[in-house]
Design a protein around this nucleic acid. Structure first.
Lengths: 347, 347
DNA sequence: GACCTCCGATGAAACGATTTAGGCACGGAC
DNA sequence: GTCCGTGCCTAAATCGTTTCATCGGAGGTC
């Protein structure tokens, strides 16, 4: 009985094997792969046949070693569990696909260390470029990437200097829209439920809220700021409990939350504690994720063009990769308020 | 005035440059990188200094070409927008991180073509192994991967043969749990809102539902099956409209949905059309995603150990990669019903 | 028949890391 | 003084692909 040769690891066929099988030279196989028009039809078919027979799979490491470039981009997400970022990722993916590149998604999960590890690895992989929503936009590792030749585009964050392209949404405006909407509805005491101040978004949205409040001539102390540890559903619930604890005189009649996760948590806590939305508390969220509209009391929210955000970011990156005269650009999208039952229902 | 040398692309430093700068040979630099203990302290420090000065970044392509293996895994997700899969991904990531490997996430978005492109590319990259929730578990491309030496673990799906490891949850049991719960609550007419029958999960959960129904001795025609195009929030809403269209005599008093997205859509449609949950319609979902508990009427749902699913899958893959005596294994987790207000509230 | 052209195929030289077989210097033991 | 270990380092081969200068032969022209 014959013993299977090389039963250990079959180690896949190389161009050399293909060349031998097809009876041509190495260079010809490579031509079939990369410039099929330079090879005669009969030879090409013979080579393709050999590839199929041997189960040849091109070794991307060797290819990119030789050519000095890869066919991939990467997006380092801040939180893969937040639908906002997965929608952004989808926009990026569409652009990458259109350009014939593949996209790797990495999740930093809000942890600097994890982000750093991903970046180091991507740099070693020599990806064409990196899109990132950074834990900290001022992280010097980002500068180091640029210096060492890996283009970086910052997504949904901005940075003071301009050695990067970035794509973001005007969060100050978003904050204004939300609070103006509440003021128009007649609310005189409003809570701003934010995440930690370390997040630029949270600061900007709060700033927009304050601006709108001041312009309406309302007393600053009636815009109550609640800080949360993290912009999550659980923290939104906790914020709801803090609101209940306030005396009726000081209790806001409306809340603007820094994102939809917070808003959904707050919504749930409010309803399950027996109060009504928007009767006892009107709620505005931010991001307009799909679940916002699907909440049992559909959530008024500030919509960001998530997919466009991703697409535009990828386009900027591709331009930077392809065009030596590329100029860095800071794109700012305009958000839009989507009013739904959580602020519109009868009180 | 001096002209910046090589102003085009700086082309990063190689081990050769480091060796020249540090005044040692190439091999020594490699030793510093891979077996620092074999290098004297003074030499090592000199080399490390040179690396820092030159901004040396190891070229992973060259490394993996030479060593024949990479330091990465990949998870090809079916739908990155579904929190269920992002939670699974997190479990995988934890295991990968623990093993010192990096994880690439790819999103097939339910499209075979996209999935195929990702798989081909990953194979060319020579990733150590692939975890996948496939569009079609019987896709021959998966067999081809195995044949050509890339280990594959199937996640949240199963396959008849056993040339793969797989990790899944007992969906028949999950379906039973859901419907038994509704029967216990006294419902005599129940809808099963499923996705397309092409999805194994949808079939299995439906099968469990039918089993429970039959065992309770209830007439089969009172378990109404509604098929949806896709298991999404929008389709859940549409299903709600179809339910409303039924005559009061034929209209179910409860619905079991094949996943939480469907359930949330159905919940929203029901409430916004002026009916109550669970009064007019009790609802059970599946997956117990975070948003299920956060819905304004918290959703009863069948919980799957999502993160454990991912972790275990990654462990199986790592075992397959590392252990030549590896035996394929089909792990099946047990789901659990989490009862909440959407079935428990006063009618 | 000599010469030129053009197409297609060839083979060797890279790319940047790892690995392995050796080489050199220094010290200690006899 | 010779011999042998030991500790550190060097030099060269290698991984699989792409690229580029080159070569051979078929066909056309004078």
């Amino acid at each position: 009985m014959a013993i299977t040769p090389g039963a250990g690891t079959p180690r896949s066929a190389s161009v050399k094997d293909v060349a031998a099988t097809a009876g041509v030279s190495l260079g010809t196989v490579s031509n079939v792969l990369n410039r099929p028009d330079r090879v005669s039809r009969t030879t090409r078919e013979r080579v393709e046949r050999a590839m199929a027979d041997l189960g040849f799979v091109r070794n991307e490491s060797a290819r990119s070693l030789r050519t000095g470039s890869t066919q991939s981009l990467a997006y380092v997400m801040l939180d893969a569990g937040n639908p906002f970022f997965t929608d952004v990722a989808r926009g990026i993916e569409l652009a990458a696909e259109a350009a014939g590149l593949s996209l790797f998604l990495c999740n930093s999960d809000g942890r600097s260390a994890r982000e750093g590890a991903h970046l180091a690895h991507l740099q070693q992989q020599r990806v064409q470029g990196i899109l990132i929503t950074p834990v900290d936009p001022d992280d010097p590792q980002l500068d180091q990437l640029i210096e060492r030749g890996t283009p970086v585009v910052i997504v949904d964050r901005t940075r003071a200097g301009s050695s990067f392209c970035s794509v973001a949404v005007d969060d100050v405006l978003g904050g204004r829209l939300a609070v103006e909407h509440l003021i128009d509805a007649g609310h005189k005491r409003v809570a701003y439920v934010g995440g930690p101040e370390s997040i630029g978004q949270v600061r900007d949205r709060g700033e927009g809220a304050r601006q709108a409040w001041a312009e309406a001539g309302l007393p600053p102390e009636d815009l109550v700021v609640l800080s949360c540890e993290a912009p999550t559903v659980a923290c939104g619930r906790a914020a709801g409990e803090r609101l209940v604890g306030l005396s009726a005189r000081r209790r806001p009649t409306a809340a603007f939350c820094a994102n939809d996760l917070l808003a959904l948590g707050l919504l749930q806590q409010t309803i399950s504690s027996g109060r009504t939305v928007p009767g006892d508390l009107a709620i505005v969220g931010y991001d307009d994720i799909e679940f916002a509209a699907a909440a049992a009391v559909p959530l008024t929210s500030v919509r960001q063009p998530r997919q466009d955000l991703g697409r535009r970011a990828a386009e900027l990156l591709l331009d930077e990769v392809g065009d030596p005269t590329h100029q860095h650009e800071q794109v700012v999208f305009t958000p839009e308020l989507v009013a739904r039952a959580s602020t519109l229902g009868r009180p």
